[in-house]
Design a protein around this nucleic acid. Sequence first.
DNA 1: TAAACGATTAGCT
DNA 2: GCTAATCGTTTAT
Length: 211
Amino acid sequence: MDDRRRGHHPRKAPPPGLVLTPEFFARPSDEVGPDLVGKVLWRAGVGGGRLTEVEAYLPTGDPACHAAIGRTPRNASMFGPPGCVYVYRSYGVHILLNLVCDAEEVGSAVLVRSFEPLNDAEPLRQNRGIAGGGDPRAVSCGPGRVGQALGLRLDLDGLPLGEESGLFVIDDGARPEVGVATRVGISQGDDLLLRYYMRGSRFISRAPRTI
DNA sequence: TAAACGATTAGCT
DNA sequence: GCTAATCGTTTAT
């Protein structure tokens, strides 16, 4: 007998809720960012969890934004339609996930930095090479860990959220208190308050610096 | 064509 | 706290 016939959701199914559509993302990333905190990021067949930390990157006045230099082969998907993903390699090692915001051609996105695993975290752990146990924060705190846990690859770059990418963002009704802080790992625009995190959560990659 | 540089992490001190 | 690993993109020559 499978999970469905036992009367509850299969282990690999996302939590029930409203799947966010492109309209949600068709706003500036500094509006989308705080609204994403507390939503559920899910990869079909793998799993996911509740977003605890994201960063907005703005098309103007933000030198840290990849789109600031204009459209290039690498950042092209940032200029694509809202609700698509911008996936790129960082430091030659890590795969980082962004969700494209605002209107097409604008060049605005939100970087996913951390989430708190929901339901069965074991597939995420296996992708991370830490199956079995240990600090749950090691699973998906930090943008490189997020990409590895979800099993992301560069060929997802530019695909829309949904069946094509296997990536979904779900509103399950949670409304956490959202904190604001400076962004991480950048040398320019590091004074801008564009990092959004879930207050009280332990699943934050770097402690917010109080201004 | 060459060199520098990361929206980072893991491991060691 | 410090640094190696690692490679595609960007910039300089």
